[in-house]
């Protein structure tokens, strides 16, 4: 798989780390009760198909970004 880093362009997946589901809204710092954090941290869908995820270009510019990837085919949508 090759991943388009928004800063460096398309690079091999080996240069990146996966950062998990990016569809959830993280409670703002200092807010959110136990239930809100529980839902944010533990409750995930496991979709087959397009999925918005966090990735970091760890072996490059170290930029974190969101990426829309098809979990079944690894196809990456443009302009995620």
């Amino acid at each position: 798989m090759r991943i388009p880093c928004p800063h460096c362009g398309e690079r091999d997946v080996a240069e990146f780390r996966y950062g998990g589901d990016a569809t959830k809204q993280r409670p703002a710092h200092g807010t959110g009760d136990l239930q809100a954090w529980h839902d944010y941290h533990f409750m995930f869908d496991n979709p087959k198909g397009p999925h918005t995820e966090y990735w970091q270009h760890t072996l490059g510019c170290r930029q974190w970004f969101k990426l829309r990837r098809n979990t079944a085919t690894n196809e990456i949508e443009d302009g995620a």
Partner: peptide, 16 residues
């Protein structure tokens, strides 16, 4: 070391 660095970057770049 690597994990902490990445975590701090994640918080600063994506959330705070």
């Amino acid at each position: 070391a690597g994990e902490v660095m990445s975590w701090l970057e994640f918080l600063l770049q994506m959330h705070w």
